[in-house]
């Protein structure tokens, strides 16, 4: 009793809209396996009946349960490694010099999904900042579901295995039943907000570093330009933007310049002066 094509398309559409995750054809069994417990929980006799009901009478709670059941996360901790190394070894020492008065750094993890990136940044800053410094990290995502999950700060065993060094696991997480929960000392420096990067952004204090990785690849050139312009307005004059390895501002937005940072590249606004000599920003 496999899912009908119509039911599968309905679920795939819902998950794509709500969580920007694509369920390719061939995943019918997976969808069914994940939805069997959900159907049971809401008292439907079968997945087919459950999906028929919800298509006839949309129910936000049930829709959320479907999205939740199907969006297990594949994101790694310290994904791609190099940006985090470049931060620790090159950019943070510069920023620490430039912010000696305020002793505070603000980071933005744009399109943070279930939270691995902002929490990886929190671990990086926790380890790299001198005593007496503060940091704030904002994680944003278009999906309410992902924001909810990131806010909870709980990760499954499989998620925890992905690229997180064991020493940091025992240091910055605690066991919570089948899951691992991020330590309160990190959690309190990270906040989350639902945000559409292609729409005008709400007012926020400017950021020292923005991570916007593997997001632009999903947009057409005009949208890329809009997003980069929006982000540029949020960046301090001597702040840094990290993109995914396959992404660039070149040919899209001339206001940025690419700077080699360690074994990767970072971007900054062209009017920028080196962080070490920056005026109070």
């Amino acid at each position: 009793m496999t899912l009908s094509q119509q039911d599968f398309s309905f679920v795939a559409g819902l998950v794509r809209r709500e969580a920007s995750i694509v369920l390719a054809p061939g995943k019918e069994y997976l969808v069914e396996a994940r939805l069997i417990p959900v159907a049971r929980q809401v008292g439907a006799a079968s997945v087919t009946e459950f999906l028929a009901n919800i298509q006839r009478r949309p129910d936000p709670t049930h829709q959320r349960m479907i999205v939740d059941a199907l969006t297990t996360n594949e994101t790694s901790w310290f994904r791609d490694r190099e940006p985090f190394t470049a931060l620790t070894e090159q950019l943070l020492p510069e920023l620490i010099g430039a912010r000696a008065t305020s002793r505070k750094l603000r980071f933005w993890s744009a399109a943070c999904s279930s939270g691995q990136e902002p929490y990886s940044l929190a671990i990086t800053l926790q380890q790299a900042l001198p005593a007496g410094w503060n940091y704030e990290i904002v994680g944003s995502d278009i999906s309410t579901e992902m924001i909810k999950r990131a806010e909870a700060g709980e990760f499954s065993q499989v998620e925890i295995n992905r690229g997180l060094p064991a020493a940091q696991l025992v240091h910055y997480f605690e066991r919570a039943g089948a899951h691992w929960r991020i330590a309160p000392s990190l959690r309190r420096n990270v906040s989350f907000t639902r945000l559409n990067l292609t729409a005008p952004l709400p007012p926020m204090p400017p950021f020292d570093v923005v991570f916007l990785r593997n997001v632009l690849i999903y947009f057409d050139v005009d949208t890329k330009r809009t997003v980069l312009r929006n982000i540029g307005r949020m960046l301090r004059p001597d702040g840094w933007l990290f993109l995914g390895a396959a992404e660039t501002t070149i040919g899209i937005d001339d206001n940025y310049e690419r700077v080699v940072a360690g074994r990767t590249s970072a971007y900054r606004l062209k009017s920028a002066v080196p962080a070490g000599t920056a005026r109070k920003g």
Binding site: G26, K27, Y29, L30, E32, A33, R34, V158
Partner: peptide, 22 residues
């Protein structure tokens, strides 16, 4: 169920095509 799903997705069904149907 979560434990079983993790075992299946790690070793028995890495492509997420044939999970255990509860």
């Amino acid at each position: 169920h979560e434990i079983v799903e993790q075992v299946w997705s790690s070793y028995l069904d890495p492509d997420g095509i044939e999970p255990l149907l509860p």
